[in-house]
Amino acid sequence: NITNLCPFDEVFNATRFASVYAWNRKRISNCVADYSVLYNLAPFFTFKCYGVSPTKLNDLCFTNVYADSFVIRGDEVRQIAPGQTGNIADYNYKLPDDFTGCVIAWNSNKLDSKVSGNYNYLYRLFRKSNLKPFERDISTEIYQAGNKPCNGVAGFNCYFPLRSYSFRPTYGVGHQPYRVVVLSFELLHAPATVCGPKKST
């Protein structure tokens, strides 16, 4: 009989979030998941669920729940959905087409922007091929755009693959930082360890 609440607040209220290319994953298990708490945590810009209804979450049980978190800019949030393409979905964080879970995003301009520009958040701009779903690539190998090998040196047709967002508070919403948490629900042929409040007794 599990009584402890799932530590969603640790994920959502973390002081620092990860850069999207090096997104963070927390496995959540053996706890009571009260998803209604999430609705009250922040004024969400996005709370979209796929393959599951957000209002039914509190009635369900899962084997595992994974919470992935990272920062992107406002106009990239739409890429965090099944079947999307674009720089983020292709080279940084890719959801599977049959994704079961929820994408939660909110504006973090007050936390993640600086007047002089916050350069701490990076994204991958160049990659030889698209990522597979939930693949994480943290390599910093020089990207070869031409025929000549780069031998690890940046220059003509040889690019450092990561680029930094420079978040400034005066930017338009599309270029402001957004914190994203992706909850993916895993149903294996194994005992369910993460249940809503109704199912945990």
Rank of each mutant, 00 (worst) to 15 (best):
D137C: 04
R25A: 02
D68R: 04
I88C: 03
P169N: 04
G172A: 00
S113P: 01
Y178E: 02
D112C: 01
G174V: 03
T201C: 10
T170V: 02
P96A: 08
V181T: 05
S116K: 12
L187N: 14
G83M: 11
F99S: 01
G172E: 00
F167Y: 05
Y66H: 08
D75I: 05
N107V: 03
V32N: 09
L122W: 08
I138P: 07
D137H: 04
A105V: 08
L95W: 01
E186Q: 13
N30W: 08
R179V: 00
E135W: 05
D98S: 11
P96M: 03
F134C: 05
L162A: 03
L95A: 02
R127C: 01
E186P: 08
D137Q: 03
T170L: 04
N157E: 01
Y165K: 01
K199C: 10
T63W: 09
G117D: 03
Y39A: 15
S19R: 03
T15P: 13
A89S: 00
K148Q: 13
A105L: 05
Y121I: 07
V115C: 05
V77T: 06
F45G: 15
P177A: 07
N64Y: 14
V77F: 05
D9S: 13
G86Y: 02
N157L: 02
L188F: 12
V181L: 07
R78T: 11
K198H: 14
K132P: 06
P54Y: 12
Y39Q: 15
F134R: 07
V71H: 01
K114Q: 11
C195N: 07
N92P: 02
A190I: 11
F185W: 10
K198S: 14
H175Y: 15
I138S: 10
R78L: 08
R78D: 08
K114H: 12
L125W: 15
S29V: 09
Y143W: 04
W23R: 02
A81G: 09
G155R: 06
P149H: 11
P82V: 05
S164A: 11
S139Y: 05
V103P: 00
V71S: 02
N109F: 03
V77I: 10
P197Q: 15
G83P: 02
N87Y: 15
I88G: 01
T55E: 15
I28Y: 15
F44L: 14
Y165S: 00
P133F: 06
Q144R: 09
T46I: 13
K110S: 11
I138E: 13
N157T: 02
N13L: 12
L188V: 13
R168L: 01
H175F: 12
Y66L: 11
V52L: 13
N109Q: 05
P133W: 05
